[in-house]
């Protein structure tokens, strides 16, 4: 892998959540000791259930939330030391809901040119030119300039959001479920566009999605998050060919490919997602894990290196008694 453009070192974010009127605030570890490296031009797919901390991680990367521990490095510079303006030039977001991500009171031209105006780039004329060029890039004609978001369809709005994210030519784009609010036929257009833009501008994506088929299609690396931790991370080929963590396997199992010869899969995930305020002891996944044993309840698994990433599971820890049993499975 080339020198990482984005690196997370032991990043953690703990919220203090008050329970009830007079309850003592309890810590909620939304992101718990996450380390990641992302090379230029790569697409890291981040998957996990709602509440697993993937959106908090995105907010930390965008500078909207400060991590309580750890460091985020862009091109080797810690972004804690950078001001928000400098960070904004390098990392930009594309949000899930194009109905909520565009200010309804502004014209498309205002929306797309906002980054330029905030950063004081160029004069009115050069800004207008940049806006037109960027809109063309995302496939929107110049005549949308003076229209309002309410006049556009969902797909068109998402193109505007992409234009706004790209006008400063960032290095990294955080895509938080960018297509899940769109219709199937529009979704594929946006995915194709994101893929093309990555090729053309050497963009690096952090791509958050619940749709594993989309992740498999777009991502080069995949990280699986569970209760604030990255429980498995690997190159996309490896992860989809040989998922190691039982949770990853369950996720892959739950993908519904349009194949009428198969029924609804059994994910073998019994219990519901745990309350992050009081996470289960040991391995957080053990109450839902079909392979759980006493050790899982008692001891948190450590990260075990794999061919292209790591996994946190006793089944794959050579020092665990469960390792041998796993080999025999």
């Amino acid at each position: 892998m080339s020198a990482p453009v984005l690196e997370l070192k032991n990043v953690a974010k703990t919220y203090r959540v008050k329970q009830g009127l007079f309850g003592k605030p309890k810590p909620l570890k939304a992101v718990n000791d996450v380390s990641l490296k992302l090379g230029r031009g790569e697409v890291l797919g981040l998957v996990g259930e709602s509440g697993c901390g993937k959106s908090t991680l995105a907010k930390i990367l965008l500078g909207l939330e400060a991590p309580t521990e750890g460091q985020v490095l862009v091109d080797g510079d810690a972004i804690g030391g950078q001001d928000r303006l400098a960070l904004a030039k390098r990392i930009q977001p594309i949000f899930q809901d194009p109905y909520s991500s565009l200010n309804p009171r502004k014209t498309i031209s205002d929306i797309v040119s906002l980054p330029l105006r905030v950063h004081g780039v160029g004069d009115a004329e050069s800004r207008a030119k940049a806006v037109r060029e960027t809109l063309e890039l995302v496939g929107l004609p110049a005549r949308v300039l003076n229209t309002y978001p309410s006049q556009m369809s969902g797909g068109q709005r998402q193109r505007v959001a992409i234009a706004r994210a790209l006008i400063m030519r960032p290095e990294i784009v955080i895509c938080d479920e960018p297509t899940s609010a769109l219709d199937v036929s529009v979704q594929s257009q946006i995915l194709n566009l994101l893929n093309d833009l990555r090729d053309d501008f050497g963009l690096t994506y952090l791509f958050i999605s619940h749709d594993l088929a989309v992740i498999e299609h777009l991502a080069t690396r995949v990280a699986v998050m569970y209760l604030g931790r990255i429980v498995e991370e690997a190159d996309v080929e490896e992860l989809f060919a040989t998922p190691r963590h039982p949770y990853t396997r369950a996720l892959l199992n739950s993908v519904l490919t349009p194949d009428p010869s198969q029924g609804v899969p059994d994910t073998q995930l019994g219990a519901a997602y745990p309350n992050p305020i009081s996470p289960p002891s040991g391995c957080h996944f053990h109450p839902r894990c079909p392979f759980a044993q006493a050790e899982c309840k008692a001891k948190a698994p450590r990260p075990i290196p794999t061919a292209s990433g790591h996994v946190e599971c006793h089944l794959h820890d050579p020092e665990s008694t469960m390792y041998r049993e796993n080999l025999s499975v």
């Binding site: 619940h210 594993l212 369950a250 739950s254 519904l256 029924g263 609804v264």
Partner: peptide, 11 residues
Amino acid sequence: LDVTIQAQILS
């Protein structure tokens, strides 16, 4: 719903 829950509810 989440994908894993979706599969459970559908089945």
